[in-house]
Amino acid sequence: MLKLQNLRAGYGNIIAVDDVSLEVGQGEIVSLIGANGAGKSTVLMTISGVVSCLAGRVLLDDVEIQGLEPDQIVRRGVCQVPEGRHIFPQLTVRENLDMGAFLRRDKKGIRDDIDYVFTLFPILAERRNQDGGTLSGGQQQMLAMSRALMARPSLLLLDEPSMGLAPLMSKQIFKIIKRINADHGTTIFLVEQNANQALHIAHRGYVLENGRIVLAGSGEALLTDPEVQKAYLGI
C-alpha cells in the first residue's frame, strides 16, 4: 500500500532522514522504532507532505504522492496523528471530531463514525462539549486518534501514541490500535520509542538509526534480535 523508496528529507540544510526505503502492506500494522532524533517523525511528516521530500519517492498504491499538498494526501486516505497530539485547544471535543471529518460531506456516515469512536473511547462521549485543551494527556491521545479515524483513513500514521502516558493508559491505547486494525482493516504505520509494545502488536517492524534503516523484520524477530534487545528493550 505504502512504499518509501530512498527517501531523503529534512529542514533547510539539515538532512534528517536519508535513503530510507520501507514498505507497508494492505491491512498490516508496521512499527518504526528508533531513539530520540533518529528521524521517525520526519518520515511521517514527509509522507503527509508537511516536510518536503528532497529525494526519493513516496508511493501510495503505486502512485507517487511526494510533492502533493498535505490536504491532497489526506484526500487520498492517509491520516496522521502527530506527536504531541495537536488537539485544537479552543474547540470542543465534538468540534475536534468534526474537524477530522473536514473533507467528508456524508452527514449520516459522520454521525455513525462519531458513535463508533465514542464506543472505542466512552470518556470522550462524556466530555463532548468540553474544550479539547482541558483534557488530560491520555484523553487527548484518544481524541487525536478518534479525530484521525473520523476521516475514515485507509492508512493511519501514528506518531508516538504512548508518549507521556501512564503504563496502563498506554496499554489501552495499543489495544485500541489493534482493534482499529481488526475492525476496519485499517493499515497502520506506527512510530514509537516504546519498542516493546510497538513490536508486540506489529506484524513487521523497522529500526531507524541516525536517519537510516538499520534493521527490518517481523515483530517477533525484532523482539528477539540481540541488537534490538540491547539497544531498545533494555534486556
Partner: peptide, 16 residues
C-alpha cells in the same frame, strides 16, 4: 479557526 489554533494540524485534517 482551526488554522489559527494549530496550522500544522489543520493541514493534517485536510484543510488547504
Amino acid at each position: 479557526r482551526a488554522t489559527a489554533q494549530d496550522s500544522t494540524m489543520a493541514m493534517l485534517v485536510g484543510i488547504n
